[in-house]
Amino acid sequence: MEIYTTIVIRTVLFYVLILVIFRVMGKREIGELSILDLVVFVMIGELAILGIENPKEPSILVAIPMVLLMVIQIILAKISLKSKRFRDLVDGKPTIIINRGKIDEQAMRKQRYNFDDLLTQLREKDIRSIADVEFAILESSGSLSVIERMNNSDGKPKDGDITIPLIIDGNIEEENLTRINKTNLWLRQELKKMGYRDVRKISFCSFENGKFFVDIMDEE
């Protein structure tokens, strides 16, 4: 009887501890979990199970690594906020699967993403035909973001673009500049015309449909 009481108490204890840990780590939807989040969540869950299944093991010996994992995750999350290079290394980058109505088979092969995956995720978004899609972006979380084609009043497809970041956290995204056939020098000259001389002070800059969007870093 004593062992059953111990198991019940430990179950409640670890349940509360996990709630506290997840609350401290922040609210995230399941589909938005990064690889770091997922690894930490799985390890914490496994540790809790081991603690419940081994009632003779002191609870503190299980709680310590759980809290340690929480601290590690918070530290890495802060590094991720300040370093896009670290985010790209851990989470990967979004991949454009359909660009202006054209399927990028090379990008699909690179991501080991097949047509069955594409059609399944399009159906989940109530998209009946690939012909209705202007852009489809495979996010780093594995979800598919879809932008449908827009038509003019005459029924012909309307030209449009997606937001392509050219500067993130003060760093120029050379890969995205290449994607729109522009250069680093072009970007700096255009920004100077608008009065932005120091790229490092720009938190986010994008170029869409011939227009810039620029956001300056907050002063700490």
Rank of each mutant, 00 (worst) to 15 (best):
K125D: 04
K125N: 09
K125G: 01
K125R: 12
D126P: 02
I127C: 02
I127L: 06
R128P: 00
S129E: 13
S129A: 02
I130E: 06
A131P: 07
A131T: 15
A131M: 11
D132Q: 13
D132M: 03
D132S: 04
D132Y: 04
D132H: 09
D132A: 01
V133P: 14
V133H: 11
V133W: 13
E134Y: 06
E134S: 08
F135I: 02
F135K: 05
A136C: 05
A136N: 08
I137L: 04
I137S: 06
I137H: 02
I137W: 03
I137T: 12
L138R: 11
L138K: 12
E139Q: 14
E139S: 12
S140N: 15
S140Y: 05
S140Q: 11
S140I: 07
S140P: 01
S141E: 09
S141A: 10
S141C: 09
G142T: 10
G142H: 05
G142K: 04
G142Y: 06
G142W: 09
G142S: 05
S143A: 01
S143N: 05
S143W: 00
S143E: 12
L144C: 07
L144W: 12
L144E: 11
L144I: 11
L144R: 03
S145W: 14
S145K: 15
S145Q: 14
S145I: 12
S145N: 15
V146K: 12
V146N: 06
I147S: 02
I147R: 00
E148M: 11
E148Q: 12
E148I: 13
E148N: 10
E148V: 13
E148A: 02
R149E: 09
R149F: 02
R149I: 13
M150Y: 02
M150N: 11
M150E: 13
N151P: 00
N151H: 06
N151F: 07
N151D: 04
N151T: 00
N151I: 00
N152S: 05
S153H: 04
S153E: 10
S153K: 11
D154V: 07
D154G: 10
G155M: 08
P157R: 03
K158F: 03
K158E: 10
D159C: 05
D159N: 13
D159E: 15
D159F: 08
D159V: 12
G160F: 03
G160Q: 09
G160M: 14
D161V: 14
D161S: 07
D161G: 08
D161H: 01
I162E: 10
I162M: 14
T163S: 09
T163K: 02
T163F: 00
I164K: 05
I164P: 01
I164F: 01
I164D: 04
I164S: 04
I164Q: 04
I164N: 03
P165K: 04
P165W: 06
P165N: 10
P165H: 08
P165T: 13
L166Q: 01
L166V: 09
I167W: 05
I167H: 13
I167R: 11
I168C: 01
I168V: 15
I168L: 03
I168S: 07
I168P: 02
I168A: 01
I168K: 01
D169S: 15
D169N: 15
D169I: 15
G170A: 14
G170S: 13
G170T: 10
G170C: 13
G170K: 11
N171H: 10
N171D: 07
N171I: 14
I172F: 07
I172M: 03
I172C: 03
I172K: 02
I172Q: 01
I172R: 01
I172A: 02
E173T: 13
